[in-house]
Design a binder for these strands. Structure first.
Lengths: 251, 251
DNA sequence: TCAACTACGTAAACACCGTTCACTGACTCG
DNA sequence: CGAGTCAGTGAACGGTGTTTACGTAGTTGA
């Protein structure tokens, strides 16, 4: 059955062990504690052996970031699975709240993946020509955004008028990615249901969601927010409202 | 004239040297390169001598973050000095664009100050009961926000209606800080010109400005933005527009 | 002025780090 | 079986933060 040889099986097992221990160190003691020697100690090997699996510590951290992206995507997918297929608004709430919850529960991982400069880590999925559209986490957000678009006629005030001309080309590229995502789900749509103004609004929504979450993780709100959750929820309600969705009862 | 003794003069000079070299290392080679031994080498002393100035490397990094805040505030103040005292809209543009420009030009410093978890660095000004309102950078933003408020009747749609009830207390506290900032500038105002809805809007504006800048620094936009500046400017125009300011020609 | 004191800086040491290299020994395959 | 592959080892190198004991220059008070 298994084509893999004994050596290959042991290798994947060891590699999984390495990543698990590295993740644990990252979560519990921060990025600086993710040390080749500490990982090796936990796994039960010596530090130089890790070079049979990774080119360097930086390379290991990069792979770790990819793992984190994938796991986050899986967690958000799980959140989505419990929600009515047709209730797109609830899906948006679930993904955004899930993202915030995950970030607050795993600040070190959030920092590694979403607040590291390219030169200290590189992208999460550098194969896709410097766009993040290829990684797993981006996929989940794209899919929900796609469902949002496909399910709902957008209000007229999301026309292309307020979109800066310099952004037309970039937004058009993102528009194609979004449309392709929607079409992949079997819903046939074209540019007419997704004007550049809507693409721009989706981008601005990501700016706000990311901004809120990062500010909360890093404690950089201009004043002490004793309970940031209602602020996040009301921001989501506003974002959805601007896209023509009415308010939603809090799940 | 100078009350300081020779030893005290040498000390402040050495300390300034330490911070300057540490800053240079941070800017040029990133946080991990800010090494006690590297700093000492540049200054011309040995590493243990640094313990006469700082409790630990972490303590040094914390002080460094404070310096960065102060310098950023000075830079933004300089940007403001060349702008008409009465043109509040232009002042907002100047501060926000200055913040973005600084962040892009100094990503390592931005990361240290604005994208570090509290446990790895602590706040920039931890003396002010966990609020950032006390640091220099916050001061500049507060002052501009204060001028914005004092100079302009806010539109009616910034009423308190959409503000979540759970945020009333926190927003009221921030409202008092903002009003005190305005009053410090000699303009007498009270709560009537600054409803909680406006305070909330200012907070949301910070979320968007910070979100955009951080996404740009960390390369985490959902698609490749070939020229993010028009996007930032149009966001500022929208933020100001929502506060009742018309569009502004680009300086 | 001179002794007592303070405090900046040093060298040595410790335990840790990433990384390289020569080597062993178990596994794989013809 | 024999040759080859490769995960893992131990030793080493140069680097790190931090502590310790110590010297010595600057300061201070009598």
């Amino acid at each position: 059955m298994t084509e893999a040889t004994r050596r290959e099986r042991l290798r994947v097992e060891t590699e999984r062990d390495i990543r698990r221990q590295a993740r644990a160190l990252l979560v519990e003691h921060g990025r600086d504690a993710v040390t080749l020697r500490a990982i090796a100690r936990e796994v039960g090997i010596t530090a130089p052996a890790l070079y049979r699996y990774y080119d360097s510590r930086e390379d290991l951290l990069r792979r770790l970031a990819e793992d984190i992206c994938t796991d986050l995507a899986a967690e958000l997918d799980a959140d989505l699975s419990g929600i009515d297929e047709d209730d797109v608004s609830a899906q948006v709430y679930a993904v955004c709240r899930g993202f915030r919850r995950w970030a607050l529960a795993h600040p070190q991982e959030f920092t590694l993946v979403f607040a590291s400069t390219e030169d200290t880590l590189g992208s999460c999925a550098p194969d896709e020509d410097r766009s993040q559209a290829g990684d797993q986490f981006g996929r989940v957000f794209l899919e929900v955004a796609g469902r949002l678009i496909a399910s709902h006629p957008l209000p007229d005030d999301l026309g292309d008028d307020d979109v800066p001309a310099e952004l037309h080309a970039d937004l058009a590229a993102f528009q194609q990615i979004l449309l392709a995502t929607v079409n992949d789900r079997g819903v046939a749509v074209d540019e007419t249901v997704l004007p550049l103004g809507a693409v721009y609004h989706i981008t601005q929504s990501w700016v706000r969601i990311y901004g809120h979450v990062a500010l909360e993780v890093f404690g950089r709100f201009p004043f002490a927010v004793s309970n940031p959750e209602p602020m996040f929820d009301s921001m989501l309600a506003q974002i959805l409202g601007e896209m023509g969705f009415g308010h939603l009862p809090q799940p």
